[in-house]
């Protein structure tokens, strides 16, 4: 059970959060101009990395805010959390 440091509320139990998949996938501004393949790439294709992964999380049973997380999926270590719109740490 993770202990997640919500950027708005601080450390809270994982049970207060929900995971929202891969981060930094921006919804296309002009979807109509996209081919089926390009749209499918945005819509369906997600990475499943063993190692450092950038993820979206929502403090669903708390402040309801979405934020980003850098997590190592091989050992569940959370390396960073940062607000939506902020640049991912290098």
């Amino acid at each position: 059970m993770f202990l997640i440091n919500c950027p708005y509320c601080g450390e809270r139990d994982q049970s207060e959060f929900s995971a929202g998949g891969e981060a930094h996938i921006i919804r296309p501004k002009q979807p109509t101009e996209m081919s089926d393949d390009q749209w499918a790439e945005y819509l369906f294709m997600r990475k499943n990395i063993k190692g450092i992964q950038f993820e979206r999380w929502n403090h669903s049973h708390g402040c309801r805010k979405w934020f980003n997380m850098v997590r190592d999926t091989s050992n569940d270590k959370i390396h960073a959390v940062y607000k939506m719109g902020e640049k991912p740490p290098v």
Binding site: S18, R27, R64, W66
Partner: peptide
């Protein structure tokens, strides 16, 4: 509600 919040916070802030 959570879907709407998602779009509001992440795609259309």
């Amino acid at each position: 509600l959570s879907k709407l919040e998602d779009y509001l916070q992440t795609e259309w802030p």
